[in-house]
């Protein structure tokens, strides 16, 4: 009991310490804005007020064109999830195949894949627009393209380097190919898969906002661009903060998931 209390207190103390620079930053922002010409930066107080109003704004049911920021967030998340899930399935499958049973193909395919990865994803957005249009399909494709490579490469790399002694141990106990895969290769690869997923999440968010800013009719990126077009300073900065907050939340959820799955590696992670 005592230990739990101390742990909680410790956590709270760390939280307070970490919050100091953030609060200072907002205070400075609030105060500093007064010295700038009007219409460049909105002060946080007004941003929060505008954002709050936006959050509680109700939209008449059929009017999707007038969605709130939350509605647009839902649209964006939906696209991200679909593209991400697709990247996950394809990246893991191909990564494991190239890393294990189809090793000879690795030499043939990997250089080509590396080139694909190096293509600037921003530069491909217009190409994808021509192929897929500017609606959901194109956004999902962009997210897929960006998230696929880190998942593929990290899975392949991890599976390739599986500890041969562990494979010997499992095989000596008569492990079937299936058991070898699920019991040794997958758990061994998990840490590098997580590395891939973390990178993929980051680029997926990056690319969805970017592609929606460049051309869309809905979504957080489009919403953000819209506030610029209508010179709504408060909501514009508010959207930036909101997207940042989303990224932080996703990171935290991911970090927790990773820590939980890799508890056996704790000594190495700390």
């Amino acid at each position: 009991m005592n230990a739990t209390v101390r742990k909680t207190l410790n956590f709270l103390r760390r939280l307070v310490v970490a919050a100091i620079p953030i609060l200072l930053f907002f205070a400075l922002w609030e105060y500093g804005v007064r010295f700038l010409p009007k219409g460049v930066i909105a002060p946080p107080s007004r941003i929060f007020k505008a954002m709050f109003a936006e959050f509680i704004r109700t939209v008449p049911a059929p009017n999707t064109a007038n969605l709130t920021i939350l509605g647009h967030m839902a649209k964006s998340l939906n696209r991200v999830l679909r593209g991400y899930a697709l990247a996950l399935v394809c990246g893991l499958t191909l990564g494991f195949l190239l890393g294990t049973y189809f090793r000879p193909l690795e030499r043939l395919m990997l250089p080509f894949f590396r080139v694909c990865e190096k293509l600037n994803p921003f530069a491909i957005i217009p190409v994808f627009m021509i192929i897929f249009g500017i609606y959901d399909k194109e956004k999902v494709a962009i997210v897929f393209w960006a998230a696929f490579w880190p998942v593929l490469f990290n899975t392949q790399e991890g599976a390739k380097n599986v500890d041969s002694q562990l494979v010997r141990a499992a095989r000596s106990m008569g492990a079937s190919k299936f058991k070898l895969f699920t019991g040794v290769i997958v758990p061994y690869t998990l840490p590098s898969i997580f590395t891939g997923l973390r990178l993929a999440t980051r680029v997926a968010f990056f690319m969805i906002i970017a592609s929606e800013v460049i051309g869309a009719t809905s979504g957080l990126g489009w919403y953000y661009a819209q506030q610029g077009a209508t010179h709504n300073l408060e909501l514009r900065y508010g959207t930036i903060l909101f997207i940042t907050l989303l990224a932080i939340i996703f990171n935290a959820v991911f970090g927790g998931l990773e820590k939980r799955s890799l508890r056996w590696k704790e000594a190495l992670l700390v």
């Binding site: 500890d163 002694q165 562990l166 010997r168 141990a169 095989r171 000596s172 106990m173 008569g174 019991g183 040794v184 758990p187 061994y188 998990l190 056996w264 590696k265």
Partner: peptide, 21 residues
């Protein structure tokens, strides 16, 4: 004819599965 459970092996460097208790 191949690995079987009538022979157990203890490998150099333990070869324990680190993700298993």
């Amino acid at each position: 004819t191949g690995p079987a459970l009538d022979r157990g092996i203890v490998l150099q460097g333990y070869a324990l599965f680190p993700w298993r208790t």
